[in-house]
Design a binder for these strands. Structure first.
Length: 437
RNA sequence: GGAGAGGUGGCCGAGUGGUUGAAGGCGGCGGUCUUGAAAACCGCAGGGUGAAAGCCCCGGGGGUUCGAAUCCCUCCCUCUCCGCCA
């Protein structure tokens, strides 16, 4: 269950409003309310009958122990009366089961309402919270009054032998980039850089997760049912290729009750990410801005509810550090309700400036899910030993997604002569300061 | 992939179809004792739902039965051996 029956009953209006603000259908809220009422009625009836049955069974046991003939008329009569009750229970149980299945299905479809201070609306309602660095110009001044034009990343990369999109298309299909030579090394260097900073400077515990998950995990983080069509499915084994490390990593603590002193728990994980990008055909077809497989370092945090708001700001900062070290200009955008996913309560996107294509590219999305995912995954914590378990809060954020970061790097660090300068932080990882043909 | 063993409370581990939501041990919490601690002794402690009574939960699902942790089916997982293999 994602929103919880308690909240459904007490706060239906907020849920309805939240769905509408996100551009989703609020009908699921009313359907859930209806099913919940029906369920409670059936449950009351069947519980009463079960109590009756339990008494009767106990009576039969006592009678036999008290010396009654198990095959005698007295016991047979008791047994017969109980049979009728059991049959009625079975009927109710069947109906209850179908109601509960329906209810669960409907609950999974109720969106997580955005925090109240999130701007309502579409893209125009997004708020640029802050910017960092000086966006590089597309046309750059050169020596002696000359000027040069920055090329898009795919041209830079292909010319330097760092990327072979044709090979990727041949081997797998379009949207599966083949990095080579310094391009491949750059991938490895970035992954290492990001993981190193997060583990050494930000205190994350490094995880190297499976790249394939089962349906329960995909449901836990909310990919199912909302984004099921965006995932690659291994049908034979009923498994899904991960669209982000968020899925395997957040599910680590599914069905657990964590002690207070363990919180917050903060993981950082590298994984390849697979996305079908269904419905995005024809968008960003050139280069590596929208691909079916990319690499990403993801931060995941499990927090006490009262700490999740501050944690979101902190996580955002952890991602920003990486862009600052790479010397890439970026802006932080607070997403408006209509731009958010159904599971998030508050989301910041980090957008990096790519002067070749002259666009801001989303390289990170940092979100507070509050209790929405945790309830689906049944992840709880205890304030103190012996206290009632409570649902905790989960957050995650990219730190960072590689493909678009690489695109920005290529476009920012290209030189007029066609070579590529390696950002200082990456030199130790790459072993060179300049990449040339 | 083949053969076998097993999945019970935070952990280990009993469990006969009938007050066993579950013995016992360890661990945990509280107390007595102690200058303090240890030891010893006493006591308290699972989760869900519900206003409560109650109902449900012994890997998941289904079945047999008046009644299932206990019997049957099925799926999943763990372990051991064999085969294959980075």
């Amino acid at each position: 269950m994602s929103v919880g029956l308690q909240r459904l009953r007490e706060d239906a209006e907020r849920l309805r409003r939240g769905a509408i603000d996100k551009g989703e259908d609020p009908a699921a809220v009313d359907a859930a309310l209806r099913l919940d009422r029906r369920r409670r009625a059936l449950l009351g009836e069947s519980d009463r009958l079960k109590a009756q049955r339990n008494d009767a069974s106990r009576g039969i046991g006592d009678a036999i122990k008290g010396g009654a003939d198990p095959r005698g008329a007295e016991v047979a009569e008791l047994r017969e009366r109980s049979t009728g009750v059991s049959r009625r229970i079975a009927e109710l149980e069947r109906e209850l089961q179908s109601i509960e299945a329906e209810l669960e299905e409907v609950l999974l479809r109720i969106p997580n309402p955005a925090d109240l201070d999130v701007p309502v609306g579409g893209e125009q309602a997004n708020v640029v919270v802050r910017t960092w660095g000086e966006p590089a110009r597309h046309m750059e001044d050169g020596q002696g009054g000359s000027s040069w034009e920055r090329r898009p990343h795919w041209q830079v990369a292909e010319a330097l032998g760092m990327l072979d999109l044709a090979a990727g298309a041949k081997v797998t299909g379009s949207g599966f980039p083949m990095y080579r030579a310094a391009g491949a090394a750059l991938q490895r260097a970035l992954i290492d850089l990001f993981l190193s900073i997060h583990t050494r400077e930000h205190g994350f515990v490094e995880i190297w997760p499976p790249a394939v998950v089962n349906a329960a995990s995909a449901r836990g983080t909310g990919q199912i049912p909302d984004k099921e069509h965006q995932m690659y499915v291994v049908e034979r084994d009923d498994l899904y290729l991960v669209p982000t490390a968020e899925v395997p990593v957040t599910n680590i603590h599914r069905d657990e009750i964590l002690d207070a002193e363990r919180l917050p728990i903060r993981y950082v994980a590298y994984s390849p990410c697979f996305r079908r990008e269904a419905g995005a055909a024809g968008k960003d077809t050139r280069g590596i801005l929208r691909v079916h497989q990319f690499d990403k370092v993801e931060m995941v945090s499990f927090e006490r509810p009262e700490a999740s708001g501050a944690a979101l700001e902190w996580l955002t900062g952890c991602a920003e550090v990486l862009l600052q070290r790479l010397g890439l200009a970026y802006r932080v955008v607070l997403l408006a309700t209509g731009e958010m996913g159904v599971t998030q309560a508050r989301t910041y996107d980090l957008e990096v400036w790519a002067p070749g294509v002259e666009r801001w590219l989303e390289v990170s999305s940092v979100s507070n899910f509050r209790d929405y995912q945790a309830r689906r995954m049944n992840i709880r914590w205890r304030r103190e030993p012996g206290a009632k378990p409570e649902i905790l809060h989960t957050l995650n954020g990219s730190g960072l997604a590689l493909a678009r970061t690489v695109a920005a790097l290529l476009e920012v660090y290209q030189q007029p002569d066609g070579t590529l300068r390696v950002p200082d932080v990456l030199c130790p990882h790459m072993g060179v300061e300049l990449i040339r043909r």
